[in-house]
Amino acid sequence: MNQKISLRTAATAAMVAAASLSMMACTATKPDTQAAPRADSTSLDTRVNAALERLYQTAPGSRDQVRRAKGVLVFPSVIGGSFIVGVEHGRGVLRVQGRDRGQYSTTAASVGWQAGGQSRAVIYVFNTQEALDKFLASDGWSAGVDATVAVGRVGASGSVDTNTAETPVTGYVLNNLGLEAGISLQGSKITRIRD
């Protein structure tokens, strides 16, 4: 019995290693944006600005929503992939009233049979002061646990759907093709990076 368990463990480890290698070769983002997790603050700010501009172009009305928001947390490149167990990781910046309030990391895990890897921008818009205060007071915030995150959608008019724009926290996910629909941000863990 122990030998069966050892063989199963070894096979699983081999599959995870093979998946990791294959994920390095698969991405949905341009090569120049892949360095997100370990970038200096200047290049991170540049990529945050670029991610916001892409959001504004993709979802008309989002610029006004971000302008009215109490804070916006932008992860310009969340890199992940999965084979059996998937992991995503990225580094981002929280902006309050247009000023950087700190850097954060995000991590999410999923279980499923999805070979490949990808990179996407994830943007959280804190529409209420209460939602932002709760986020700032946390020592590790989880989407869906500490706050419900409504995934931002574009309505029939081509503008941001007003229902999701009025929730305490709205999340947007962008890939190279535009706004991703039907995606859940629940379970994403966000932690402040302490210098």
Rank of each mutant, 00 (worst) to 15 (best):
Q65L: 14
V72A: 11
T33E: 15
I79Y: 04
D161M: 07
A165C: 12
G80A: 01
G98K: 04
G71Q: 13
A137N: 10
T106C: 05
V125F: 02
K30P: 05
K4E: 11
A11G: 02
R47E: 13
R99Q: 08
P31C: 13
M23N: 09
D45T: 06
V151E: 14
A11Q: 02
K30G: 10
P60S: 07
Q118W: 02
A51N: 05
G92P: 03
R8Y: 00
R63Y: 05
G102Y: 03
L44Q: 09
G140L: 10
I123D: 13
R47M: 05
A10Y: 00
K4A: 07
A137K: 09
V122P: 01
R63V: 03
I123S: 12
D32I: 08
A165G: 10
N49C: 05
G187A: 12
S138P: 06
D40F: 00
L7K: 09
G182V: 04
L21E: 15
S41F: 00
T58H: 06
E180F: 01
F83C: 02
A143D: 15
K189F: 05
W113F: 06
K70Y: 05
R68C: 10
A51D: 09
V173Y: 07
D64L: 13
V48G: 06
N175G: 04
R99H: 02
G92E: 07
G144E: 15
G102Q: 08
A121W: 00
R95A: 09
N2E: 15
D146V: 01
A17C: 12
S138N: 11
A181W: 01
N176P: 08
I84V: 01
L132A: 04
A36I: 03
S6A: 10
F135W: 07
K189A: 10
L94Q: 11
S105C: 02
V66D: 12
A150K: 11
I79A: 09
S20R: 10
A51G: 03
L179Q: 12
T170W: 08
T12W: 00
G117P: 00
V169Y: 12
T42I: 00
D45G: 08
M23C: 04
S138M: 07
T128H: 06
V151S: 11
G71H: 06
S62Y: 00
L44N: 08
T167K: 15
V149W: 08
S142A: 14
T9N: 11
V85W: 00
K30C: 09
M15P: 00
A59F: 00
P168H: 07
Y124R: 14
R68F: 07
A39E: 15
L179W: 02
F135P: 05
D40K: 04
K70G: 02
R54K: 10
R101G: 06
I193Y: 03
A131H: 02
A115N: 09
Q186I: 05
I79Q: 12
I193M: 11
T148H: 12
N127T: 09
S142E: 15
T106F: 00
E166S: 15
T12M: 05
Q97R: 06
V74S: 15
T27H: 12
A17Y: 04
R120C: 01
L7A: 07
V160D: 13
L136T: 11
K70H: 10
T162S: 15
G71A: 06
V78H: 09
S82M: 01
A137H: 01
V125W: 04
Y124A: 14
F135A: 04
G98E: 06
V173T: 06
K70E: 14
M1C: 03
P60D: 12
V149Q: 14
C26T: 11
A51K: 03
G155R: 09
P60A: 07
